[in-house]
Amino acid sequence: MNIHKEFIQIFSENLRFIIKKMRVEEENLQEIRMRVEKPFLILVDGEEYFVTENGELTKKEEEGYIITKQEMMETISYITHYSLYAYEEEIRQGFLTIEGGHRIGIAGKMVMDGKKIKSIKYISFLNIRLTHEKKGCADCLLPYIINDGKICHTLLVSPPRGGKTTILRDLVRQLSNGTKFLNGVTVGVVDERSEIGGSYLGIPQNDLGIRTDVLDCCPKAEGMMMLIRSMSPQVIAVDEIGDYEDSRAIETVMNCGCKVIATVHGDSIEDIQKKPILQQMVTQKVFERYVILGKKPGKILEIFDERGTRLYQEGASVC
């Protein structure tokens, strides 16, 4: 398998051997799923496969390599560089980001401190999501979100795995570096779950452009206000907005003359309007562009303006 050595090193020795033998290209590999005493699973181009002990991909569950508890512990030890204690905060959140920007989701037995989650013990489930930079995937979108040389407040709407974060990342990169439509602008990214930048030790592992400042692992609402106060961005990008705090922070940001590009889970404008806070934002015409993505990663279905006028529909010529 054509994959970085540093990435393979996070797995236990047996699994390193299996992964090296897998005939999968890194850019096609989306997820690696590990569950104790369950078969080793990977997701390639949206298709799920079991991996045999010889690294072959199969659809037969019984041929899948069974992950042992020891292997899980060894893998966790490598993921945390033998320092589980240093990742207490990340573990409490249920995920951590490793070098390369790959995100590792964790599940197991929760340790509670009153009503708060203290930690997770007996970590038995791992979901390793590989980050993919698709440079240029937002090319077709740029003419729609830049109007008369000004960036429009934009909301990317997509179902899970629809590629909204990937498109947002490329938008940030292009706006920051500058494009043929616009000179580079200062972009502030509030990366609550380290998905946009995939920061490792505070440094984004994904290319977010030369004029981008990142607040990593920071709550969105607080982060937006901090960026406004400290880094004076012209554009603020956030992933997966949804609660009242976010909505208030976005309004404040907009009142400061800063443009907002955000993403949200959903299938259509009607779908997001079922959520009261988002419905209010749609009604109040907070966003000037709504980009609806399809289930196939990165596929743009429709683009609307704030009045609901369709600017683009799948199949029409965009680029």
Binding site: T80, H81, Y82, S83, Y85, A86
Partner: peptide, 10 residues
């Protein structure tokens, strides 16, 4: 290093 910076072992 561990107490104040909460650094990883490496």
């Amino acid at each position: 290093e561990i107490r104040y910076a909460k650094a990883t072992l490496p």
